[in-house]
Amino acid sequence: MTYHYHDETIIKNLPDDTIFVFGSNMAGTHQGGAAKTALLHFGATKGVGRGWAGQSFAIPTMNEHLQQMPLSQIQHYIEDFKIYTKNHPKMKYFITAVGCGVAGYKVEEIAPMFKGISRNVIFPVSFRPFVEKTLPKLTQKLVHTFIQDSVIFSDNPSETIQTLNLTEAEKSLATIVINTPMYPEDSNGRDRTFEISDILQALNGKIFEFQSNSEGPMIFGGVILALMELYQFNERDFIELWNGEKTIAPPKPEHHAKR
């Protein structure tokens, strides 16, 4: 099924027939991220952490104590939302990256939960590989195209990616990987500097030449770490991939099973 997508830039208004969908906590504090946008611009109500309010719809991803909910519980609320969209077909739903900000989950953990939803939704572009089709196979051409300084350190990497000679699925993958926080901390607040340093050490002199573990190389290594975690491979695999000695298939659906 083909859906519509948005580029995940911050918005402050939508057409009257379009609902802003965001991840929330059950306390309804709406203090940051898309929840704050919903409060300031789309009629979300303090203390209401679930369901419709104004021109917004809250999907809980954290409990009333502002703690991360298990994926199985989030899936329950997403299933409720699917029913809501089906029962209100005249409305459209602008879905943000629910659960992928403060709640700390990854796109590949949340996005597949929305599969099978009615077509009156607008997804963040990072969801595309997971709701519409599988991730693309990794090839030497693909990784050479987007893992380069001119893309990673662009003033607007997402916009730069759209100019690359890649398929839409490959552009979505590149956007996901480059926008995944890894350095100095990931989206769960974990320090990843030691892991990135190990990756740089393994690759240094083999396919790249890094002067030191300064910020630039660490950011570069963080992108590679994000790709390695998404596809579940190691440094040796990446070297062989970069050198054109192998391709890497996308992870199987069971790798995104609920925790």
Results as ranks from 00 to 15, higher is better:
1 M>R: 14
2 T>F: 13
2 T>V: 11
6 H>R: 10
6 H>W: 07
6 H>S: 05
8 E>K: 09
9 T>L: 04
9 T>D: 08
11 I>N: 06
12 K>E: 14
15 P>Q: 09
18 T>N: 04
19 I>W: 06
20 F>G: 00
21 V>S: 08
22 F>K: 08
25 N>S: 05
27 A>F: 05
27 A>V: 09
31 Q>P: 01
33 G>Y: 06
42 F>N: 03
44 A>V: 03
45 T>F: 12
47 G>W: 13
48 V>R: 07
49 G>Y: 15
55 Q>D: 07
57 F>K: 08
67 Q>N: 14
68 Q>S: 15
69 M>C: 08
70 P>V: 13
73 Q>E: 15
74 I>M: 14
75 Q>L: 10
76 H>K: 15
77 Y>V: 12
78 I>V: 15
79 E>Y: 01
81 F>P: 01
85 T>N: 01
86 K>N: 14
87 N>F: 11
88 H>G: 13
89 P>F: 14
89 P>G: 12
91 M>Q: 10
95 I>W: 11
97 A>I: 06
98 V>C: 03
99 G>W: 11
100 C>D: 04
100 C>M: 10
102 V>S: 11
104 G>M: 12
104 G>P: 08
106 K>E: 12
107 V>K: 00
111 A>E: 03
111 A>N: 02
115 K>E: 13
115 K>P: 01
119 R>G: 10
121 V>N: 00
121 V>P: 00
123 F>S: 01
125 V>K: 09
125 V>C: 02
127 F>Q: 02
127 F>V: 01
128 R>E: 10
132 E>M: 06
132 E>N: 04
133 K>T: 15
134 T>H: 07
134 T>P: 08
138 L>Y: 06
138 L>P: 05
140 Q>N: 11
141 K>N: 14
146 F>E: 06
147 I>K: 03
149 D>L: 05
151 V>A: 06
151 V>Q: 05
152 I>M: 05
154 S>I: 07
156 N>D: 11
156 N>Y: 07
157 P>T: 08
157 P>S: 02
162 Q>H: 11
163 T>H: 14
164 L>Q: 05
165 N>S: 10
166 L>A: 04
167 T>H: 07
168 E>A: 13
168 E>M: 10
169 A>I: 15
171 K>G: 04
174 A>L: 04
176 I>M: 07
177 V>R: 00
179 N>E: 08
179 N>H: 09
181 P>H: 02
182 M>K: 13
182 M>I: 08
185 E>L: 09
187 S>L: 14
190 R>W: 07
192 R>T: 14
194 F>Q: 15
195 E>W: 02
195 E>S: 13
196 I>F: 06
206 K>F: 03
207 I>M: 07
210 F>A: 05
210 F>S: 01
211 Q>Y: 12
212 S>G: 00
217 P>S: 09
228 M>N: 11
236 R>S: 09
237 D>W: 03
237 D>M: 05
237 D>V: 01
240 E>T: 04
240 E>C: 00
241 L>E: 01
241 L>T: 00
242 W>M: 03
243 N>M: 12
243 N>I: 00
245 E>A: 04
245 E>G: 07
246 K>M: 13
247 T>V: 11
248 I>H: 10
249 A>W: 00
249 A>K: 12
253 P>G: 02
254 E>D: 09
255 H>Q: 11
258 K>I: 14
